[in-house]
Write a protein that binds this DNA or RNA. Structure first.
Length: 494
RNA sequence: GGGCCGUUAGCUCAGCCUGGUAGAGCAGCGGAUUUUUAAUCCGUUGGUCAGGGGUUCAAUUCCCCUACGGCCCA
């Protein structure tokens, strides 16, 4: 097996540096400035002002470009906050140091000690008096101009993506910022951040297929959580009153630009609130993020301009179908007519599906993708909502909403079902559905019902998809663009 | 699960339709260059064309299978 010539060349340089007594991986550097701090302090000063500044500082980062002039060179150095140009002159740093500098490669981590000046093109530049190698790069970076565009390589080698594609970095800074804003928002409202188990003896709290694992010491199967819901509600029973968890959950389902099997959401529960209160709170949270990030309520997502100014539309599931499909309301009240209509649209309807599921199939197929402006869809059928409180006076439906923005579900919330007898009946309905072939139906959870039997206060709860929210706010077309290390199939051999 | 598309130098891409064992730019290497910024100028190295099979005198190119990835649909 022949080694790549580029690697061989670098190894030769490494040997040559070692022979000159250069430590390739020292750890005694003292960094006193960052690219951003230097630019912030000096970028708006003119050459005369800069000449009066008698201050040296040390920056560190990755060598990203070298423009060589024989006895001097311009280089770019990049740290986590940005990049800055430096000027390295043989006369200034000395012959020996310059010979070391000449053996550095793009990609090496270096430190640079010097003063600032402005070039004749007006760019703030650090004139190096000392340059040190801090960590040698053995492999070459992708191309300086096009960066790394192969999506497969970008996801498999995210470290390279982050080095050469600054906009990717920006996405993940924003992701972190959004999560921080959510946390602040919840903490200010006296919600307690908690952590509940990620391995559950039974998958509950959502309608989804779980991942399964085995606990050796306990000798039993566990399931990676599909939602933290049932544990958070146990905490409500326990009297915590306002809780939230920024949680990773797992659903053993297909991947798409909007679905990743491992995803992040925030779930929160508030006692003495209703799903209607949560609609107001959701509006506040999302505009708060928008204002903090961009200073505006307007976002641009994939060419769509979205106005987040509240109040947002609130429409029932049935109203939304009637409006978007232009059909008579009675079609949604009769299972036979609804099935016939759904089939006429080419939607896959299984025989014997209850009316509520047929209605949701029509909604998913015909309405969802058209909900571009932020819209709360309310009043879900009871068959698809086993943990939600029945609507007063409308027992086939529940007090629930989902938030849609840009045609995608962003949040799901409801007034919680806290009647243990009703909850048992709902689980029984799910078991019937499972017998009828719905293998995603919720299982009976006696332990949870027992918790409810101790009395859960009236409560409303919500889950907000954080990956999807980050997609909206970073204008990312794929969920994999907002997840640092999306799962990829292993390659057999390289 | 289905359909379409892709995989060629370290990176970004041509070449394939119409078969004759590969090209460019950047990076690298050698040389010139002390205000460039995709630096410039001269010279130059580098490839199991994703893997396997088939057709053919001859396959990166045509056909089939596999792997991995992307987009769309379910």
């Amino acid at each position: 097996m022949k080694e790549n010539e580029l690697l061989t060349k670098r190894k030769e340089k490494i040997e040559s540096l070692k022979a000159d007594g250069i430590d390739l991986y020292p750890n005694d550097v003292i960094v006193t400035a960052t690219t951003r701090s230097v630019l912030a302090r000096f970028d708006n000063m003119d050459s005369d002002d800069l000449a009066r500044i008698d201050e040296e500082f040390t920056l560190a980062g990755r060598l990203m470009a070298v423009r060589n002039f024989g006895k001097a060179a311009f280089i770019n150095i990049q740290d986590s906050e940005g990049k800055i140009q430096a000027y390295v002159k043989k006369n200034t740093i000395g012959e020996k140091a310059f010979s070391v500098f000449e053996r550095l490669d793009v990609g090496d981590i270096i430190s640079l000690t010097g003063r600032v000046f402005k070039t004749k093109t007006g760019e703030l530049t650090v004139e190096a008096v000392k340059i040190r190698l801090l960590s040698k790069a053995v492999r070459p970076l992708p191309e300086k101009w096009h960066g790394l565009t192969d999506v497969e390589k970008r996801y498999r080698q995210r470290h390279l993506d982050l080095i050469v594609n600054p906009e990717v970095r920006e996405v993940f800074y924003n992701r972190s910022r959004i999560i921080q804003l959510i946390r602040n928002f919840m903490n200010e409202r006296d919600f307690l951040e908690v952590e509940t188990p990620m391995m559950h003896p039974m998958a509950g709290g959502a309608i989804a297929r779980p991942f399964k694992t085995y606990h050796n010491a306990l000798g039993m199967d566990f399931y990676l959580r599909i939602a933290p819901e049932l544990y958070l509600k146990r905490l409500i029973v326990g009297g915590l009153e306002r809780v939230y968890e920024i949680n990773r959950s797992f659903r053993n389902e297909g991947v798409s630009t909007f679905h990743n099997p491992e995803f992040t959401m925030m779930e929160f529960y508030q006692t003495y609130a209703t799903y209607e209160d949560l609609m107001d709170m959701t509006e506040e949270l999302i505009i708060d993020i928008s204002k903090e990030l961009f200073g505006t309520y307007t976002i641009n997502y994939q060419g769509m301009e979205i106005d987040l100014t509240p109040p947002w539309q609130r429409v029932t599931v049935e109203e939304s179908i009637i409006k978007h499909c232009g059909i008579a309301p009675d079609i949604l009240e009769d299972a036979g007519k609804a099935v016939e209509y759904a089939k006429s649209l080419g939607l896959p309807i299984k025989d014997g599906e209850p009316l509520g599921k047929v209605i949701m199939s029509i909604f998913d197929g015909m309405v969802e993708k058209n909900l571009i402006e932020p819209t709360f869809i309310t009043d879900y059928p009871i068959e698809v909502s086993p943990l939600s409180r029945k609507s007063a006076g409308n027992p086939g439906f529940v007090d629930r909403f989902e938030l849609y923005i840009c045609g995608r579900e962003i949040a799901n919330a409801f007034s919680e079902l806290n009647d243990p007898v009703d909850q048992r009946e709902r689980f029984m309905m799910q078991i019937e559905a499972r017998k009828a072939g719905d293998d995603e139906a919720h299982e009976m959870d006696e332990d949870y019902i027992q918790a409810l039997e101790y009395g859960m206060p009236p409560t409303a709860g919500e889950g907000i998809g954080i990956d999807r929210l980050v997609m909206l706010f970073t204008n990312s077309p794929s969920i994999r663009d907002v997840i640092l290390f999306p799962h990829m199939r292993s390659k057999v051999k390289d």
